[in-house]
Amino acid sequence: MHPPTLPLHTQLLQMASGYWLSQCLYAAAKLAIADHLRTGEKHCDDLARLTETDVTALYRVLRALASVGVFQETSAATFTLTPLAEFLRSDHPRSMRGTVVMLGEPQHYEAWSDILHSVRTGESAFEHRYGQGIFEYFGSHPEAAAIFEEAMNSFSKNEEPEILTHYDFSSFTTIVDVGGGYGELLGSILAKYPTLKGILFDEDYVVDHAAPTLMRHGVGDRCQRIGGSFFETIPAGGDAYLLKHIIHDWGDEQAIAILKNCRAVLPDNGKILVCEMVVPEGNQPSGAKMLDINMLVMCPGGKERTAAEFETLLAAAGLQLTRIVRTTEEICVIEACKA
């Protein structure tokens, strides 16, 4: 039997009130409820004591989440993990906790409250509200920067198995991960290919904290960490330049500048590997179409792109699109070489 279809007005109401659910998820993730439940069910009194929260309010949030399959109330005010809630554990191999926290933090959530500014002007709502770009903001707000990098690690943990399964890195000798954060993806690649070397390139305030991730993957001795801006110069020495969720942060002019800087140090037989979602044509549902709106709100000029838009962008940087390697997730590897 198929579940009953909700009336159209109820479906619309659920869409409009979606932030009620996302903020409940944020509260549970921020309070590490799933971590507290990893050893088994707990009464709400115990959870409230562990999280220093109001027991009645916490119960109401967990009851609401249990109603959509996140946690389960096993007896009066006693909760346990569900398969869905497991992904809120910080130690889950594909944990989404970092992402859920980032999306609920004030600097992200409040920027979305100004979406009309973005729609009316085409400008970043984040920049309008905070008076600076998001990456400038991170440079002076280390706690927010750490939350962002943890979220990017969270994305990597879910996307890296797909990238590693569908793309063969064995022909390369040195991979430069441009804007590679703490090195979650690069660390996984180097771990799978023990003859490969890596260069992790990002802002100083990022790479200064990357050593634990690289050591966890056991690749610290094969990976250099270099700080700098990809708008100024990019380290030479690689035959593959990897950019995961970098190009979508920027408008065409800035994205072309980044790609040109990669091309400037790319050997003739080298490859540029842009890892992004590709927006499909037509009306079909796509996470890329919603992420595109997030880029509109959060990043000046940021956007997701179609395959044709990527081909045009790469050509403007003196590169030729060679193929798009798709995965079972929405992340793709967009491969390019010198034109």
Rank of each mutant, 00 (worst) to 15 (best):
D168Q: 08
E159K: 07
L116E: 15
H141V: 09
G104Y: 06
G181S: 12
F138I: 09
K157W: 10
I163A: 03
V100T: 10
E149Y: 12
R129K: 14
I147P: 00
T174G: 06
G187I: 08
D168V: 05
Y182K: 10
F172C: 06
L185I: 15
G131Q: 12
T173N: 11
I115Q: 09
E136S: 15
E127F: 06
V119Q: 09
W112A: 13
A146C: 07
M102N: 07
I175S: 03
I115L: 13
V178H: 03
S170F: 05
G181M: 12
G139E: 14
H141K: 11
F172P: 00
K192G: 01
R129Y: 10
A111P: 03
G187Q: 06
E136K: 13
G139Q: 13
A125F: 04
A151V: 01
D177F: 03
Y109A: 12
N153K: 11
M152N: 08
S113W: 02
K197M: 06
S170A: 14
F172H: 15
Y137E: 05
E136I: 07
I199F: 08
G183N: 08
H166P: 01
P161A: 11
S170Y: 06
V176Y: 03
Q107Y: 15
L164R: 06
L164H: 03
G104L: 04
T121G: 07
H141M: 09
A111H: 04
G98V: 08
D114A: 12
L186Q: 04
H166D: 13
S113Y: 06
A111N: 03
N153I: 09
W112G: 08
A146M: 13
I147R: 05
Y137R: 04
K192N: 02
K192C: 00
F169S: 02
I189F: 03
S113N: 10
S113F: 05
S154I: 04
Y137Q: 06
A145D: 11
G133S: 14
T99E: 11
F169M: 03
A191V: 00
R97A: 10
G98Q: 05
P194D: 03
A146E: 14
